[in-house]
Simulated assay, not measured.
Amino acid sequence: MKIFLAALLSLALLAPATAGTYGLTPGEVVRAEVLPGWVTPRGTRMAALRLTLAPGWKTYWRAPGETGIPPSFDWTGSRNLARVTLHWPSPRVFDEGGVRTIGYKHELVLPIEITPATPGAPVELVANVDLGVCEHICVPASLSFTAALAGKGAPDPAIDAALKARPISAREAGLSGVTCVVDPISDGVRVTARIPSERIGGRTVAVIEPGNPRVWASETETRREGPALLASADLVPPKGQVMALSRKTLRVTLMGEGRAIDIQGCPSP
């Protein structure tokens, strides 16, 4: 049985959380720091949130698995902020005690690309982040930070490495011909992706995401059928709502040996 505790960590730009001895209190299980980053040639700001975890602890990817705690981000209160794009590095798949979760151990550097409403003007970033950190117990942690982002900044090797660790696109992987069949179920739909597997070797785990945070997605079941890899997941809307599914926003991520592959959109056969 998992034990859930509450945590509140207050962070400030260029003032990382005080390093302390790892222990059982939430503030010692995870340490957090904002990396201010730099202004990109297209005028966005590439910053990052770095989480350092106690030995044996992990935190979760954007699609954490059925028993994981999905991270959520609230940017309300920020100034001169038009858009925020999170660039998730390729995660790891954990199979522990018959339970599969997806995330990161030891450290997560999550690049945060900020598009200002007024290009060239400073950005005041205000964020509240809810996420889970787990070992034998799970700790829901609430991170709050503000960041005054001004000037050109400077390149950061940690952010650059995290960007390079992102999943590659289907085109970069030389993967084409991916299709999806959508079948109705009692409370939503079941999506089955057929993926040509010539370029996919070894054990592969697939994750199907609906592209709508209000739609629940089951754990994706993956199996091989002849020359193809089949991945199936049930997608269920909130109770009482009609299931609206856009094939353009469907997202299939393949994780196995080496780098992950990110497949955006899934047309019909």
Rank of each mutant, 00 (worst) to 15 (best):
N80C: 15
R92V: 07
P210H: 00
A231D: 01
W216Q: 10
G37E: 08
T52D: 10
L230S: 02
N212L: 02
T249D: 11
P213V: 01
G23W: 10
P91I: 03
L131R: 09
A161G: 09
A82Y: 07
D183I: 07
A154N: 05
P36A: 04
F4T: 13
R171G: 12
W88K: 05
E113H: 03
I195A: 03
V109Q: 04
G43M: 10
V139C: 15
T67K: 08
G120E: 07
F73C: 06
S142K: 13
L53F: 08
G103I: 10
G103Y: 06
L49M: 09
G211F: 01
I195M: 03
T40M: 08
T146P: 03
F94C: 11
S10E: 14
G37V: 02
L14G: 08
R223S: 07
T40A: 13
R62T: 05
L149W: 04
L51M: 13
V178L: 04
K164E: 13
G37S: 10
R199P: 03
I3L: 13
S232T: 15
P16L: 03
A32G: 00
L35K: 07
A148S: 13
R190P: 06
V93A: 11
E225C: 08
I261T: 10
M46K: 08
Q241N: 03
H106D: 13
E135W: 12
I208N: 03
V181Y: 06
R62E: 10
S197A: 15
V29P: 02
D74H: 09
V99A: 13
R203H: 12
E257N: 11
E113W: 05
R251C: 15
V133M: 12
G97Q: 08
T40C: 07
C138L: 11
G98D: 04
E66R: 10
L51I: 04
T21W: 04
T59S: 08
R214Q: 02
A117V: 05
D234F: 02
G27L: 01
T85Y: 00
A47K: 05
P64H: 05
